[in-house]
């Protein structure tokens, strides 16, 4: 299984839906169903991590004069 940072969130959501459908169709044998169940739980945990573990960052890009941009924190209340 991929690390949560490597997961494409949209793909992961699609996978989660597919797994749910497969499980609910009840056509898998028990071993496979348990396997899918674990895969889905793991994936949803990772998606949750992406959503909740990201760090809030609001920055402003400032031209430093030599053609590059410096990234600095930006406080909207002072805007």
């Amino acid at each position: 299984m991929k690390k949560s940072e490597d997961i494409n969130f949209e793909e992961a959501m699609k996978n989660l839906e597919e797994i749910a459908n497969e499980l609910e169709k009840n056509e898998l044998d028990l071993d496979k169903a348990v396997e899918k169940f674990e895969e889905g739980m793991e994936l949803s945990k990772k998606c949750n991590e992406i959503l909740t573990n990201a760090e809030k960052r609001i920055t402003i890009l400032i031209n430093n004069g030599d053609g590059n941009l410096d990234e600095e924190p930006f406080d909207a209340n002072q805007a």
């Binding site: 573990n53 990201a54 809030k56 960052r57 609001i58 402003i60 890009l61 941009l69 930006f74």
Partner: peptide
Amino acid sequence: NVYIKLLP
């Protein structure tokens, strides 16, 4: 936890 970059 949004990440916003402002390019003024």
